[in-house]
Design a protein around this nucleic acid. Structure first.
Length: 297
DNA sequence: CCTTGAACCTGGGCGC
DNA sequence: TGCGCCCAGGTTCAAG
């Protein structure tokens, strides 16, 4: 389910119950997700206090007072849900009374925190997600984070930055935008949406958005603005919910109602007076949705 | 370095 | 109802 806006939505949902909480008990229901769990996973977590819940790209980061950080990636189908064990109803936290175990619940964190006793359950049907425990000072050097690109929400994403990274690239723009080594956090949905907003062809070689002297073509300034906007709007909307519920309280994000092209094959392009139809092509084994009339740059 | 394609895994939807 | 196929928000690895 998750690109950056969905992961950020999860982070915001979990933070009120996780920050400041002590991990009283962990139920690890299988030996692996996409990868094996780290050695002594349960032992290293139990008794630890969660200082802060952060995010880098599509990774959730729970900083522990043990000096380690619990890193989790939701893959394609991972989700967290919160269940309160009695205690008071908390504004902003959905109360799921008697949580019964669901298929594909793989890890249950029993927390003792500011909102009372809470269970945070990780569910992941496809098991493309993974968890890791890293010492904070070693995180940047870990393969998950070394060489990862800039956040699409920050100032580091600029036309000049993209020009430097795109220069000489023959790969299609779509592939370059999905490349986590360049921008970390974009996925298939928001890449399609950003390219449509910028009126850029997904098949255009990325290097052709760079001038001879290495300066960014004007389209890159547009693209940077549109990436920022679409990500910010999606976060604001609580992310997109396609096939699954993604929010920790069981409610749905609603950005999917604002898709211009993603998953809209055959529907009318929403650009005023366009009249064309959204098409789907396959690039690098993944669907690209776009409007061939609007996206010719 | 680059690119493509397959692999990982389960489930939902659709056509027959 | 059932079966087979295609598709899915991601990443990694092998091969050309």
């Amino acid at each position: 389910m998750p690109e950056l806006p969905e992961v950020e939505t999860v982070r915001r949902g979990l933070a009120p119950v996780m920050e400041g909480a002590v991990i009283a008990r962990v139920e690890q229901r299988r030996a692996d997700l996409r990868f094996p769990f780290p050695e002594r996973f349960v032992e290293r977590l139990e008794g630890a206090r969660i200082a802060a819940l952060g995010r880098r790209a599509k990774y959730l980061l729970a900083d522990l007072d043990t000096g380690e950080t619990l890193v989790s990636h939701l893959g394609m189908s991972g989700s967290f849900r919160i269940e309160l064990d009695g205690g008071e109803e908390t504004p902003g936290v959905f109360h799921i009374p008697r949580g019964k175990a669901l298929a594909h619940d793989h890890v249950v964190f029993h927390l003792d925190g500011p909102k009372g006793r809470v269970r945070v359950t990780y569910n992941d049907p496809r098991r493309f997600g993974y968890m890791e425990l890293l010492r904070r000072e070693a995180m940047d050097a870990h393969p998950y984070f070394a060489g990862i690109g800039v956040e699409p929400t920050g100032n580091a994403l600029s036309p000049d930055y993209l020009a430097a990274r795109f220069r000489g690239k023959t790969a299609p723009l779509k592939a370059a935008l999905l490349d986590q080594r360049i921008i970390a956090g974009l996925g298939n949905i928001y890449v399609c949406e950003a390219m449509w907003r910028s009126r850029l062809s997904p098949e255009k070689p990325a290097g052709r958005l760079v001038m001879q002297d290495g300066a960014p073509a004007p389209a890159l300034a547009r693209l940077v603005g549109d990436i920022r906007d679409v990500i910010a709007e999606a976060i604001e909307a609580g992310g997109s919910s396609l096939r699954d519920h993604i929010r920790t309280d069981g409610s749905l994000g609603y950005f999917q109602h604002r898709f211009s092209v993603y998953d809209r094959e055959g529907e009318a392009c929403t650009s005023p007076r366009c009249g064309d139809t959204v098409r789907r092509i396959v690039q690098g084994g993944r669907s690209t949705f776009y409007c061939a009339s609007c996206q010719q740059d």
